[in-house]
């Protein structure tokens, strides 16, 4: 998880990965999730975090979380076998 912790994320959603030099854009939701993942939250913790920070209606939050984690795996920002706990 060191790669994730090393990411530099600006308020505007600009992300710089000092390890690879790659840059990304994230939206507010992803920004909150990255923060939660860095703190090691499990799935329930992440869902709770989203509900606390955003006006959520009927979305499938666990599925959206897995979608983001898949992107992180694809970009090598978390180890290949990484899964959210819970």
């Amino acid at each position: 998880m060191q790669r994730l912790r090393d990411l530099a994320i600006s308020d505007s959603g600009f992300v710089f990965d000092p390890f690879s030099g790659a840059t990304y854009t994230v939206n507010g939701t992803a920004q909150v999730l990255l923060d939660g993942l860095k703190r090691g939250l499990d799935r329930d913790g992440l869902v709770a975090l989203l509900r606390e920070r955003f006006e959520c209606s009927t979305e499938d939050l666990p599925r959206d979380i897995d979608d983001l984690v898949q992107s992180l795996r694809m970009f090598g920002l978390v180890p290949g076998g990484f899964e959210v706990r819970g």
Partner: peptide, 15 residues
């Protein structure tokens, strides 16, 4: 203060 509306999380790599 009202919370922002939920939006699917997106991480887009710059190309």
């Amino acid at each position: 203060m009202s919370r922002p509306l939920y939006d699917r999380p997106i991480l887009a790599r710059h190309q």
